[in-house]
Amino acid sequence: MTGERQKLDGAALANANFRYFPYVMAAFVAILLLSNIIGASKPSFIVLPNGSEWAFGAGVLFFPLSYIIGDVLTEVYGYANARRVIWAGFAALIFMAFMAWVVVSLPPAEGWPGQEAYEFVFGNAWRIVIASIVAFWAGEFANAFVMAKMKIWTRGKHLWSRTIGSTVVGQGLDSLIFYPLAFYGLAGWPIEQLWEVVLSQWLIKTGWEILLTPVTYQVIGFLKRREGVEVFDTDTNFSPFGSRGETA
Protein backbone atom coordinates (compact mmCIF):
# COMPACT_ATOMS: atom_id res chain seq x y z
CA MET A 1 0.00 0.00 0.00
CA THR A 2 1.93 3.02 -1.30
CA GLY A 3 -0.77 5.56 -2.08
CA GLU A 4 -2.45 8.10 0.18
CA ARG A 5 -1.92 7.36 3.86
CA GLN A 6 -4.86 6.13 5.87
CA LYS A 7 -5.16 7.82 9.26
CA LEU A 8 -5.70 5.24 11.99
CA ASP A 9 -6.42 5.56 15.67
CA GLY A 10 -5.66 2.86 18.23
CA ALA A 11 -8.86 0.88 17.63
CA ALA A 12 -8.30 0.59 13.87
CA LEU A 13 -4.89 -1.04 14.35
CA ALA A 14 -6.51 -4.37 15.25
CA ASN A 15 -7.25 -5.17 11.59
CA ALA A 16 -4.21 -3.53 10.04
CA ASN A 17 -1.85 -5.76 8.06
CA PHE A 18 1.63 -4.27 8.18
CA ARG A 19 4.20 -5.51 5.70
CA TYR A 20 7.41 -4.37 7.41
CA PHE A 21 6.44 -4.65 11.07
CA PRO A 22 8.00 -8.12 11.61
CA TYR A 23 11.35 -6.90 10.25
CA VAL A 24 11.36 -3.85 12.51
CA MET A 25 10.55 -6.09 15.48
CA ALA A 26 13.40 -8.46 14.57
CA ALA A 27 15.86 -5.58 14.34
CA PHE A 28 14.77 -4.24 17.74
CA VAL A 29 15.16 -7.60 19.49
CA ALA A 30 18.51 -8.34 17.86
CA ILE A 31 20.00 -4.99 18.91
CA LEU A 32 18.56 -5.38 22.41
CA LEU A 33 20.28 -8.74 22.88
CA LEU A 34 23.58 -7.60 21.43
CA SER A 35 23.72 -4.46 23.53
CA ASN A 36 23.05 -6.34 26.76
CA ILE A 37 25.36 -9.33 26.33
CA ILE A 38 28.18 -7.85 24.23
CA GLY A 39 28.30 -4.13 24.86
CA ALA A 40 27.01 -3.57 28.39
CA SER A 41 29.62 -5.70 30.16
CA LYS A 42 32.64 -3.73 29.03
CA PRO A 43 33.51 -0.22 30.18
CA SER A 44 35.85 1.71 27.92
CA PHE A 45 37.13 5.29 27.90
CA ILE A 46 38.15 8.26 25.80
CA VAL A 47 40.97 10.64 26.63
CA LEU A 48 39.78 14.21 27.20
CA PRO A 49 41.81 17.26 26.07
CA ASN A 50 43.09 17.73 29.63
CA GLY A 51 44.54 14.22 29.61
CA SER A 52 41.95 12.65 31.92
CA GLU A 53 39.93 9.58 30.98
CA TRP A 54 36.15 9.61 30.61
CA ALA A 55 34.52 6.19 31.00
CA PHE A 56 31.58 4.90 28.97
CA GLY A 57 29.92 1.56 28.30
CA ALA A 58 30.85 -0.07 25.00
CA GLY A 59 27.20 -0.83 24.28
CA VAL A 60 26.66 2.85 23.53
CA LEU A 61 28.13 2.18 20.08
CA PHE A 62 24.92 0.47 18.98
CA PHE A 63 22.40 0.34 21.86
CA PRO A 64 20.86 3.76 20.98
CA LEU A 65 19.64 2.18 17.75
CA SER A 66 17.06 0.27 19.83
CA TYR A 67 15.56 3.57 20.99
CA ILE A 68 15.57 4.92 17.45
CA ILE A 69 13.75 1.77 16.34
CA GLY A 70 11.40 2.28 19.29
CA ASP A 71 10.65 5.76 17.96
CA VAL A 72 10.00 4.28 14.52
CA LEU A 73 7.67 1.65 15.98
CA THR A 74 5.59 4.15 17.93
CA GLU A 75 5.50 6.76 15.17
CA VAL A 76 4.60 4.35 12.35
CA TYR A 77 2.76 1.49 14.08
CA GLY A 78 1.45 3.06 17.30
CA TYR A 79 2.07 2.58 21.01
CA ALA A 80 0.21 -0.73 21.32
CA ASN A 81 2.34 -2.38 18.64
CA ALA A 82 5.48 -0.92 20.20
CA ARG A 83 4.40 -2.49 23.49
CA ARG A 84 4.20 -5.91 21.81
CA VAL A 85 7.75 -5.51 20.57
CA ILE A 86 9.04 -4.47 24.00
CA TRP A 87 7.52 -7.58 25.56
CA ALA A 88 9.05 -9.73 22.82
CA GLY A 89 12.42 -8.23 23.69
CA PHE A 90 11.91 -9.01 27.38
CA ALA A 91 11.15 -12.64 26.56
CA ALA A 92 14.25 -12.87 24.38
CA LEU A 93 16.39 -11.42 27.18
CA ILE A 94 15.11 -14.00 29.66
CA PHE A 95 15.82 -16.85 27.24
CA MET A 96 19.30 -15.46 26.53
CA ALA A 97 20.07 -15.25 30.26
CA PHE A 98 18.84 -18.79 30.87
CA MET A 99 20.97 -20.21 28.07
CA ALA A 100 23.99 -18.21 29.26
CA TRP A 101 23.55 -19.74 32.71
CA VAL A 102 23.26 -23.25 31.20
CA VAL A 103 26.37 -22.85 29.05
CA VAL A 104 28.46 -21.33 31.84
CA SER A 105 27.37 -24.10 34.22
CA LEU A 106 28.34 -26.93 31.88
CA PRO A 107 31.67 -28.49 32.89
CA PRO A 108 34.42 -27.52 30.45
CA ALA A 109 36.17 -30.20 28.42
CA GLU A 110 39.53 -31.23 29.81
CA GLY A 111 42.26 -28.90 28.65
CA TRP A 112 39.97 -26.06 27.56
CA PRO A 113 41.43 -22.83 29.01
CA GLY A 114 38.48 -20.47 28.48
CA GLN A 115 36.13 -21.28 31.37
CA GLU A 116 37.30 -18.47 33.65
CA ALA A 117 37.06 -15.88 30.88
CA TYR A 118 33.68 -17.27 29.87
CA GLU A 119 32.36 -16.93 33.41
CA PHE A 120 33.71 -13.38 33.66
CA VAL A 121 31.95 -12.26 30.49
CA PHE A 122 28.70 -14.23 30.70
CA GLY A 123 28.42 -15.09 34.40
CA ASN A 124 26.76 -11.78 35.21
CA ALA A 125 24.03 -12.33 32.64
CA TRP A 126 21.18 -12.73 35.15
CA ARG A 127 21.99 -9.48 36.93
CA ILE A 128 22.27 -7.70 33.59
CA VAL A 129 18.92 -9.09 32.47
CA ILE A 130 17.16 -8.08 35.71
CA ALA A 131 18.63 -4.59 35.39
CA SER A 132 17.64 -4.49 31.72
CA ILE A 133 14.05 -5.49 32.45
CA VAL A 134 13.65 -2.81 35.10
CA ALA A 135 15.44 -0.19 32.99
CA PHE A 136 13.45 -1.03 29.87
CA TRP A 137 10.24 -1.01 31.89
CA ALA A 138 10.88 2.62 32.68
CA GLY A 139 12.89 3.65 29.63
CA GLU A 140 11.18 2.03 26.66
CA PHE A 141 7.64 2.56 27.86
CA ALA A 142 8.41 6.15 28.83
CA ASN A 143 9.98 6.68 25.40
CA ALA A 144 6.94 5.24 23.61
CA PHE A 145 4.48 7.13 25.83
CA VAL A 146 6.17 10.50 25.31
CA MET A 147 6.50 9.81 21.58
CA ALA A 148 2.80 8.91 21.18
CA LYS A 149 1.51 11.77 23.33
CA MET A 150 3.73 14.37 21.64
CA LYS A 151 2.46 13.21 18.24
CA ILE A 152 -1.07 14.04 19.34
CA TRP A 153 -0.02 17.35 20.91
CA THR A 154 1.91 18.40 17.77
CA ARG A 155 -0.80 17.01 15.45
CA GLY A 156 1.79 14.90 13.70
CA LYS A 157 4.14 17.81 12.99
CA HIS A 158 7.70 18.47 14.17
CA LEU A 159 8.82 14.84 14.22
CA TRP A 160 12.29 15.85 15.44
CA SER A 161 10.86 17.31 18.66
CA ARG A 162 9.23 14.05 19.73
CA THR A 163 12.06 11.73 18.64
CA ILE A 164 14.59 13.79 20.62
CA GLY A 165 12.23 14.63 23.49
CA SER A 166 11.20 11.02 24.02
CA THR A 167 14.83 9.92 23.90
CA VAL A 168 15.89 12.45 26.54
CA VAL A 169 13.28 10.99 28.90
CA GLY A 170 13.62 7.32 27.97
CA GLN A 171 17.41 7.16 27.73
CA GLY A 172 17.78 9.16 30.92
CA LEU A 173 15.66 6.70 32.88
CA ASP A 174 17.30 3.70 31.22
CA SER A 175 20.87 4.81 32.01
CA LEU A 176 20.00 5.92 35.54
CA ILE A 177 18.41 2.57 36.37
CA PHE A 178 20.42 0.05 34.36
CA TYR A 179 24.05 0.67 35.24
CA PRO A 180 23.71 0.91 39.04
CA LEU A 181 21.50 -2.19 39.15
CA ALA A 182 23.75 -4.17 36.82
CA PHE A 183 27.24 -3.24 37.99
CA TYR A 184 27.17 -1.52 41.39
CA GLY A 185 29.64 -3.21 43.74
CA LEU A 186 31.32 -5.34 41.07
CA ALA A 187 35.09 -5.48 40.70
CA GLY A 188 36.26 -3.13 37.97
CA TRP A 189 33.36 -0.73 38.50
CA PRO A 190 34.38 1.90 41.10
CA ILE A 191 31.50 4.19 42.08
CA GLU A 192 33.02 7.28 40.42
CA GLN A 193 33.41 5.41 37.15
CA LEU A 194 29.89 4.02 37.42
CA TRP A 195 28.31 7.49 37.61
CA GLU A 196 30.58 8.72 34.81
CA VAL A 197 29.22 5.90 32.67
CA VAL A 198 25.60 6.75 33.60
CA LEU A 199 26.06 10.38 32.61
CA SER A 200 28.09 9.67 29.50
CA GLN A 201 25.63 6.99 28.34
CA TRP A 202 22.72 9.43 28.61
CA LEU A 203 24.57 12.20 26.80
CA ILE A 204 26.01 9.97 24.08
CA LYS A 205 22.71 8.14 23.49
CA THR A 206 20.86 11.43 23.18
CA GLY A 207 23.61 12.72 20.91
CA TRP A 208 23.21 9.64 18.72
CA GLU A 209 19.49 10.35 18.42
CA ILE A 210 20.16 13.95 17.37
CA LEU A 211 22.90 12.92 14.93
CA LEU A 212 20.75 10.24 13.32
CA THR A 213 17.62 12.40 13.07
CA PRO A 214 17.92 12.68 9.25
CA VAL A 215 18.15 8.87 9.03
CA THR A 216 15.15 8.50 11.34
CA TYR A 217 13.18 10.84 9.08
CA GLN A 218 14.05 8.75 6.04
CA VAL A 219 13.17 5.43 7.67
CA ILE A 220 9.88 6.70 9.09
CA GLY A 221 8.97 8.34 5.78
CA PHE A 222 9.75 5.13 3.88
CA LEU A 223 7.68 2.95 6.21
CA LYS A 224 4.71 5.31 6.26
CA ARG A 225 4.66 5.42 2.47
CA ARG A 226 4.99 1.65 2.17
CA GLU A 227 2.47 0.83 4.90
CA GLY A 228 0.16 3.62 3.78
CA VAL A 229 -0.85 4.66 7.31
CA GLU A 230 -0.60 7.54 9.77
CA VAL A 231 -1.25 6.32 13.33
CA PHE A 232 -2.50 8.52 16.18
CA ASP A 233 -2.90 6.97 19.63
CA THR A 234 -6.03 8.90 20.50
CA ASP A 235 -7.87 6.01 22.16
CA THR A 236 -4.98 3.77 23.22
CA ASN A 237 -4.62 2.18 26.64
CA PHE A 238 -1.08 3.21 27.65
CA SER A 239 -0.71 0.62 30.40
CA PRO A 240 2.41 -1.53 29.81
CA PHE A 241 0.18 -4.57 30.34
CA GLY A 242 -2.68 -3.58 28.08
CA SER A 243 -6.10 -4.94 28.94
CA ARG A 244 -8.75 -7.31 27.72
CA GLY A 245 -10.07 -6.06 24.41
CA GLU A 246 -6.94 -4.01 23.81
CA THR A 247 -6.43 -3.44 20.11
CA ALA A 248 -2.84 -4.63 20.11
Rank of each mutant, 00 (worst) to 15 (best):
A117R: 10
V24Y: 11
D235W: 00
F90G: 02
I204C: 02
L199G: 15
I133Y: 10
A88I: 09
M147N: 02
V24A: 15
L211Y: 11
L223Y: 10
A91Q: 11
A92I: 10
W153G: 00
V169F: 08
V102G: 03
D174G: 06
A11N: 00
L32K: 01
K149S: 02
I133F: 02
V134K: 06
W189F: 12
A100T: 15
A100Y: 13
R84Q: 15
L223T: 09
S44W: 11
A187V: 06
K157E: 13
S161L: 03
H158I: 05
V197C: 02
R155Q: 03
D71Y: 10
G165L: 07
W87Y: 14
K157G: 10
V72F: 05
A58I: 07
A82Q: 01
L8H: 01
G165M: 11
A82D: 04
V231I: 05
L73N: 05
G242W: 08
T2F: 13
P113K: 06
F232M: 04
A92S: 13
G3D: 13
I210A: 09
D71H: 11
A16N: 07
E119G: 11
T213D: 14
I86W: 00
E75A: 10
I69G: 04
I164R: 03
V146F: 04
A11G: 01
K151F: 05
L212I: 06
W54P: 02
F241S: 02
R226T: 12
T247K: 07
I38Q: 14
S66L: 15
V215L: 14
E119N: 14
A182T: 13
F238Q: 04
P214Q: 07
P190Y: 12
V134E: 09
Q6E: 15
G172E: 12
P180C: 03
M147I: 04
A58P: 01
G123S: 05
V104I: 09
T236Y: 00
R127I: 02
W153A: 05
N15E: 00
N81R: 14
L199S: 14
L32N: 09
L33V: 15
L34R: 15
E53C: 09
D235A: 01
A12T: 07
A16I: 07
F183Q: 10
P113G: 01
F90E: 08
R5P: 01
M147V: 07
H158T: 09
S175V: 15
S243W: 00
N124L: 04
G185V: 08
I177Y: 04
L33T: 11
W208Q: 06
A131K: 05
A55V: 02
F90K: 00
I69W: 07
V215S: 12
P107H: 01
S66G: 12
N81W: 01
Y184W: 08
A144L: 03
M147W: 04
V121D: 08
W202M: 11
G185L: 03
W87Q: 03
L34Q: 09
F122K: 09
Y23L: 14
R84L: 04
P113S: 03
V60D: 12
F222S: 06
P22C: 13
I31G: 03
G207A: 02
G185D: 10
W87P: 13
G172V: 15
G221H: 12
S161N: 12
F178Q: 08
P113H: 07
V215K: 06
S166Y: 00
A109Y: 13
W195S: 04
G172A: 10
G165C: 05
Q218Y: 06
E4A: 05
H158D: 12
R226N: 15
D174S: 06
L93N: 10
S166H: 00
M99G: 08
